[in-house]
């Protein structure tokens, strides 16, 4: 199976503190990979390494390789801005820009100059919103402030904003933790649909969610990947005692 992103021996240090210990993980193309584990296990840090969101953190040091289609994203020749146009991100709390819905989606294409004229941009906005399952709900109020949308709609807007620049990978950092079950279900359904075009990596504390949306799951524990494998297998027959303990709620 081809890996869209292949992480090899990745170590991450915040100053003297090591957060990841030689972690290796392959993220299968056009599949959803869930990262689970207790708080502070390094799963979010790992996720942020995949589009170099950690770069701006002071005193950070990274070892190892993160190969995106075989090219190391930490190589000196790689431009972070270009990388992030390939690897988009959706955050824990919906964080739309305090602008109109249209401007939110159009922002990415604008800064990357991905369109020729206004109608092309309109089309990008419509496709992205449609793909994020939001178009029907908001097509009549595209120019209203995005902050007036509900939490779930805001999060889908953030997903639309992320896919507007046609990335290949979408990283999601606990995208549903601030949402109610219905909004969560809509996002999960969306994740499933997006899998046709994008490779998705999702960090979640909700084990059921990981089980529902992902094809591959990796269990992180204190900076190591304890176990990674096919989701169905990991949730019915984990190989490692620690995975078993964590997913069944026997974590001590």
């Amino acid at each position: 199976m081809p890996f869209k992103i292949d992480v090899k021996n990745l170590s991450l240090f915040y100053g003297d503190k090591q957060a990841l210990f030689k972690v290796s993980l392959g993220l299968p193309k056009l599949q959803t990979t869930a990262l689970i584990g207790p708080s502070g296990c390094g799963k979010s840090s790992f996720l942020r390494c995949l589009n170099r969101m950690n770069d701006s953190v002071p005193n950070i040091h990274i070892d190892g390789k993160v190969l995106l289609d075989g090219n190391d994203i930490y190589a000196p020749s790689v431009d972070v801005v270009e990388l992030r146009s390939h690897v988009g991100m959706v955050f824990q709390k919906p964080n739309p820009f305090p602008r109109s819905i249209y401007e939110n989606v159009a922002y990415g294409p604008r800064i990357h100059k991905l369109f020729k004229n206004k109608s092309a941009l309109d089309e990008i906005v419509e496709t992205s919103l449609t793909r994020a399952g939001l178009w029907e709900e908001i097509k009549d109020r595209l120019h209203q402030p995005a902050t007036r949308l509900s939490g779930g709609q805001q999060q889908r807007l953030c997903i639309a904003r992320a896919i507007a620049i046609s990335p290949e990978v979408i990283l999601m950092d606990e995208p549903c933790s601030a949402l109610d079950p219905i909004a969560t279900a809509k996002i999960e359904e969306l994740i499933d649909e997006l899998r046709e075009k994008f490779t998705i990596v999702i960090v979640t504390h909700n084990l059921q969610q990981a089980a529902r949306v992902s094809q591959k799951t990796a269990f992180f524990h204190s900076g190591h990947i304890v176990e990674a494998g096919e989701t169905g297998e990991l949730f019915t027959m984990p190989k490692d005692e620690r995975t078993q303990g964590y997913i069944t709620g026997r974590y001590g």
């Binding site: 589009n51 969101m53 701006s56 972070v80 801005v81 270009e82 990388l83 992030r84 146009s85 988009g88 991100m89 959706v90 955050f91 709390k93 964080n95 739309p96 820009f97 305090p98 922002y107 990415g108 800064i111 990357h112 953030c158 904003r161 992320a162 620049i165």
Partner: peptide, 27 residues
């Protein structure tokens, strides 16, 4: 200015200067 706002812009590939002038200063 909430860090989430800067993160959102950075995540889309905005340069630090763009983040500053498009988002941080207006906010």
């Amino acid at each position: 200015v909430p860090y989430a706002l800067k993160e959102a812009a950075m995540g889309l590939g905005a340069m630090p200067l763009q983040v500053l002038f498009h988002h941080v200063i207006p906010a």
